[in-house]
């Protein structure tokens, strides 16, 4: 995680979403910066670059936008770039922001992948990959526990979580069916204030 530094930034004016419109070039560069600096989850970097460095949004606005992005199907970072891009420059802005955040990291990853495949025949590379896959998988597990957040405080939430996981893993239900059935149960429980 980045440490709080760069004091001259503190003197820049704080903008709000409606008070300031960055140019298309600035929009592209901001999302390019988020893309290439984001290791292990891009949202914290989005906040750092858009709120703290560029000061295009207030922290509160950023949080509100993220909550709305989460309510719409889609990868969070795609949704965030489209939201902010559209807000500033319409559909063109959305394309610019999306290209900014995805383009360069995709090129880097494809190169990395090519290097990996070039050396994949080496036993050491295969071993390193197997080891990395194990620790990366446990990071996903950790993210799942953390994403649960307040779910763990509600017995019904835990039950529903276990049921959804079991239906997908043991019973091989498709995700759509799990979301539909368990999601409906979840919404009913949430409506009653038990979640």
């Amino acid at each position: 995680m980045p440490s709080a530094d760069s004091s001259p930034v503190a003197e820049k004016a704080q903008h709000t979403l409606d008070s300031y419109t960055p140019s298309r070039r600035a929009l592209f560069l901001a999302f390019l910066q988020i893309g290439v600096s984001a290791f292990g989850g891009a949202l914290p970097w989005g906040r750092r670059i858009l709120v703290e460095d560029r000061r295009w949004l207030t922290s509160k606005e950023f949080t509100e936008i993220v909550t709305v992005c989460q309510a719409v199907p889609g990868p969070n970072m795609v949704n965030l770039s489209v939201f902010i891009g559209t807000r500033y420059h319409g559909v063109v802005g959305a394309l610019i922001a999306f290209a900014g955040i995805v383009g360069v990291p995709l090129a880097i990853l494809l190169c990395l992948n090519a290097v990996y495949h070039h050396f994949a025949y080496l036993p050491a590379v295969k071993s390193a990959m197997t080891g990395m896959a194990a620790t990366a998988t446990s990071y996903l597990l950790y993210m799942s526990v953390k994403m649960g957040g307040s779910v763990w405080k509600h017995p019904l939430g835990v039950l529903l979580c276990v049921a959804s996981g079991a239906l997908a893993f043991f019973v091989h239900w498709h995700m759509a069916l799990v979301l539909l059935v368990c999601g409906a149960v979840g919404v009913v429980i949430a409506k009653k204030g038990k979640l």
Partner: peptide, 21 residues
Amino acid sequence: IVLRGLAPVTVGLMFAGCMLL
């Protein structure tokens, strides 16, 4: 309400993914 209701389900699906891996 919908987000709260879906949260346990998405987390359950994440666990299922981890278990597969």
